[in-house]
Design a protein around this nucleic acid. Structure first.
Length: 465
RNA sequence: GACCCUAUCGUCUAGAGGCCUAGGACAAUACCCUUUCACGGUAUGAACCCGGGUUCGAAUCCCGGUGGGGUCGCCA
């Protein structure tokens, strides 16, 4: 049997980190088994679903590189199919009309809560042999409720949590179609999972309590029951639950913050799943290793520090061309034009081992394209008489120096020696003169990449002031 | 409140009864490298929630407690 998994977000907001991990695991499982990964948009909540959110989810998936094989399917486009199934269930008495009003329900729940009971529908409209139902009130359209079994247990072997059992007596006859005829979540999921022949449902563990209802529904429909794997939640950096109000951000925010998608993916793969001591691996490797057996059953706290470390790691591996493109994009956003400056890829290569993220990289590259304007304070601090004399001598020497790192390094050393300066006493003022900062990569490399013209021009500017 | 899930260093985790004096990674600390800042390298400290049981032997199995979390919608 072909493995078929799905990711089924509701388009009520962006794709956040928890959703991204669910998508990643579903995607990886399908890939691992040569199956299909299906994207399904659960947009039946018309009031809260938006096209912008759909796009945001698609963008997030694309940025991460999680391509689906089928879909996206939109539940709102499957209404006819849902109505058809509801009619069938009504006809076979697997479901029934319930005329209880919302007000009546509220009263019932209040009573149950007052008695410290679990609030649930009492089955007053459930048809039973020998039971007389009330007269349907005129003018109020009914909802459709599923006739849930009242005895026995529903159980499944959860692929991450092990066997889970619910007594049917804990479940009530939930609504599968609203008074306006639109189907509800648990029902749509079941119809879709069946129609799309989903074999493995990998989702957040906030769905554990829906699972017994869905299994009962599936069985009432005579449909096969898929495997379920419930992923525990991801907590914020502070150990608190992630929510729209607290800490939950779009995966696209990670792009804005300078993270590489492969770093985010690697981090997410290791959050709640493991393969022995392996920490750093790409998605090809992940797909080869991924299994449901090694998913952690307990909640995991997000750790930005570790993500940062992975990001720095992948930055070191990225090509200078790619980094140049990313940095250019970010500099352009700040209004910095790289035209007429040194080769961006060469500058990026200087910094890829030192930057923690792409924004830091862009910031580091910035002064190569915008000459520094040292403040009086900085001048006083770094440009002593002796230092200026050294820089003057260096200007002369560099005018005639072969423009190649090794030669340039020798030139700086020789100038320092001649001027009676220690290397640092000349190299640091030189850094400040060239880039406005007392620290930089190896000074010979900086000189080489900046180029003779810009170096001499920037030196002259400091000497003239 | 009811039901369900869960519990190893600060954090992510390895661990399928003896291989555990509990391993790895991030973070922390120290040292080394170095013209600066980083990177990198080496080293150190740091955990089995508690109580019962099963067993020759438990981080691992069972029961209870406690802590944490989820769900109880005509939301998904």
């Amino acid at each position: 049997m072909t493995v078929r998994t799905r990711f089924a977000p509701s388009p009520t907001g962006f794709l956040h980190i928890g959703g991204a991990r669910t998508a990643l695991f579903s995607w990886a499982y399908a890939r691992r088994h040569g199956g299909k990964f299906i994207l399904r948009i659960e947009d039946t909540d018309v009031a809260r679903s938006t096209p912008e959110a759909v796009q945001a989810i698609l963008d997030g998936m694309q940025w991460l590189g999680l391509a689906h094989d089928e879909g996206p399917f939109y539940q709102m486009q499957r209404m006819d199919r849902y109505r058809q199934v509801i009619d069938e269930m009504l006809a076979s008495c697997a479901a029934y009309h319930c005329y209880m009003s919302k007000e009546e329900l509220d009263v019932l729940r209040a009573e149950q809560e007052a008695r410290k009971e679990k609030p649930r529908y009492d089955g007053r409209w459930r048809p039973e042999p020998g039971k007389t139902l009330p007269m349907p009130p005129a003018g109020s359209p009914p909802v459709v409720r599923f006739r849930n079994p009242q005895e026995g247990v529903v159980a499944w072997d959860d692929q991450v949590k092990g066997r889970i059992e619910f007594a049917n007596s804990e479940l009530d006859d939930f609504i599968i179609a609203r008074a306006d005829g639109t189907p509800t979540y648990n029902f749509c999921v079941v119809v879709d999972d069946r129609d799309m022949e989903i074999t493995h449902v990998i989702r957040g563990d906030d769905h554990v309590n829906n699972t017994p209802r869905q299994i009962n529904l599936l069985q009432a429909l005579g449909a096969p029951v898929p495997q379920y794997a419930h992923l525990s939640m991801i907590l914020g950096d502070d150990g608190q639950k992630l929510s729209k109000r607290h800490g939950a951000v779009s995966v696209m925010q990670y792009d804005d913050d300078g993270y590489l998608p492969e770093a985010v993916l690697n981090y997410l793969a290791r959050l709640g799943w493991s393969h022995g001591d392996e920490e750093v691996f790409d998605m090809d490797q992940f797909v080869k290793w991924f299994d449901l057996d090694h998913i952690t059953a307990s909640a995991a706290q997000f750790n930005t520090e570790k993500l940062n470390w992975l990001n720095a790691h992948y930055l070191k591996l990225a090509s200078p061309q790619r980094l140049a493109a990313e940095a250019t994009r970010r500099l352009a956003r700040q209004g910095v034009d790289i035209a007429g400056g040194p080769d961006v890829a060469s500058v990026a290569a200087l910094y890829r081992d030192r930057a923690g993220n792409l924004n830091e990289l862009a910031d580091a590259i910035h002064p190569f394209f915008v000459p520094p304007q040292p403040t009086a304070e900085i001048r006083a601090q770094h440009f002593s008489e002796a230092a200026l004399a050294g820089l003057g001598a260096l200007h002369t020497r560099l005018s005639a120096c072969a423009w190649q790192a090794a030669e340039l390094g020798l030139a700086v050393k020789a100038t320092a020696a001649e001027s009676g300066l220690k290397m640092g006493q000349l190299a640091i003022p030189l850094r400040v003169a060239l880039l406005g900062l007392p620290q930089s990569p190896s000074i010979d490399a900086v000189l080489e990449v900046l180029g003779r013209e810009r170096v001499l021009e920037r030196l002259a500017r400091v000497l003239a002031a």
